[in-house]
Write a protein that binds this DNA or RNA. Structure first.
Lengths: 249, 249
DNA sequence: TTATATTTTGCAGTTTTTTGCATTTTTAAC
DNA sequence: GTTAAAAATGCAAAAAACTGCAAAATATAA
């Protein structure tokens, strides 16, 4: 049996079962344990799997991946959240939207700043509960299973009764011409209510979402006061937004 | 079984239930208690979870509050929750209070029953979000860091606008003479509002809390329609409650 | 084809890691 | 305080990993 074949077999077993035992596969393929050990060592070096004591596991199955929960574009979102943090002042009253980027913002709020945070997102609320310097006020309503935020008439009504200095919102799609758009109608209604109750609205969006659109519109691009992406403000990708009255951060 | 796999399993249990008991998981995975202890120690060092006496809790619940204290009486709470489940009917509209026992109830709701659940508890909401057969409606308000529920005028107002078939509530202390009492005044106000919006109120309480009282009163014992403990209904410990118009389950 | 260089493989001995058990110490529940 | 459960510690057996080396397989070149 060729080495290449053997390694391919190992990989397919790992992909199928998320794991492999050295002793098992050595017996199955009828080669020595050392050979398999060396194969796995190589495949690990090539980043095809993760070598562990006694065998190997698939990359998506590692314990490290649980914590970072495979958040798509995690680094960019952290960079965006860090920029957003700079807008916070002691005593600010803010609203934090749902979504992974806003969640990251919540996570990174420093404990030097006293804040009052409104949110309709369960994950954001969880994150903020750990911070003693933040007063958290939950916006109730029917919970969306998918996005884990309050939506519907009740949520919108609750939002109509508050006023915040800044709201930090995410969006499904953003385009300088079409504005902020979403796939989901209910979400759009809530976004509208959020923007309405905010003195200033800050959009957090990874650059990937720029210049894309979908069917329902949350607001015009002019409704946004500040837009934060992971790009430098002078990046050419942001050119189309410069004709508008937006601060790019 | 690979060590990585084991640790992975531990992490996923912690993520799902926010807690894990060393003895439980050792038996489930069929390894010694010491091994699990070492795993949890490692995972704690890697900041994947928080090690506590008797097990581990998820990082989200690090607010060293109600959560980790009572991971011990878990079995009793599960027994209570299982009894409570029997009261649920298809199409019921219920309210689920915060606290570990009610959380257990939420966790054990079977997916055969269609329900509409109101709750003011973040952990309960999290739990219910995983169930496709349950419509979850969140009661907003200021969040209590310690108990992770909405409290205050806003929460009470929101409660005044709903009506549910059953509410499942916990309490700090319960006594056949003094009724349901709490250490915290704000909590009491919310409990009153919950009871007011319920056609029937079901108290879930481990027997340990029976015949104890504290300074603020939520309601008379007569305000409770059904009381569930982990004891058999005919247990002598429940005698003092038998003079009242309560169903004991 | 043959001779030579290179890679791969299996083996033996050593080191490291993992695991379970017994004992002591600590914790927390009462 | 007492007491029972859990945690920490030390230890030894077992499993796995690493090391160096020589034989075998493969590739390369004359």
């Amino acid at each position: 049996m060729l080495k290449e074949e053997r390694q391919q077999t190992i990989l397919s077993v790992v992909e199928l079962h998320n794991r492999i035992l050295i002793t098992d596969i050595a017996e199955t393929l009828d080669v020595s344990i050392d050979t398999i050990r060396r194969d796995i060592k190589e495949l690990d070096a090539e980043n095809k799997l993760k070598k562990v004591h006694g065998g190997a596991i698939s990359l998506g199955f590692t314990t490290d991946s649980v914590k970072n929960k495979n958040i798509y574009k995690q680094e960019q979102k952290t960079a965006i959240a860090e920029k957003a943090i700079t807008l916070l002042k002691d005593g600010s009253v803010i609203f934090v939207d749902g979504g992974t980027t806003c969640n990251e913002l919540a996570r990174l709020i420093p404990n030097a700043i006293e804040l009052t945070c409104f949110t309709h997102s369960i994950p954001v609320a969880m994150e903020l509960l750990t911070k003693s310097n933040v007063t958290v006020i939950l916006i109730g309503g029917q919970l969306s299973k998918e996005s884990q935020i309050s939506i519907g008439a009740n949520a919108i009504h609750n939002l109509s009764e508050i006023k915040v200095d800044y709201s930090f919102i995410g969006t499904g799609y953003v385009d300088s011409h079409y504005g902020l758009t979403e796939f989901d109608w209910d979400i759009v209604q809530v976004k509208k209510a959020i923007i309405k109750c905010s003195k200033k609205t800050v959009l957090l969006s990874i650059s990937e979402k720029l210049n894309s659109q979908h069917r329902y519109k949350s607001c015009d691009i002019n409704a946004i006061n500040t837009m934060i992406t992971e790009l430098a403000p002078e990046d050419p990708q942001l050119n189309s937004f410069r004709n508008h009255d937006i601060r790019i951060l």
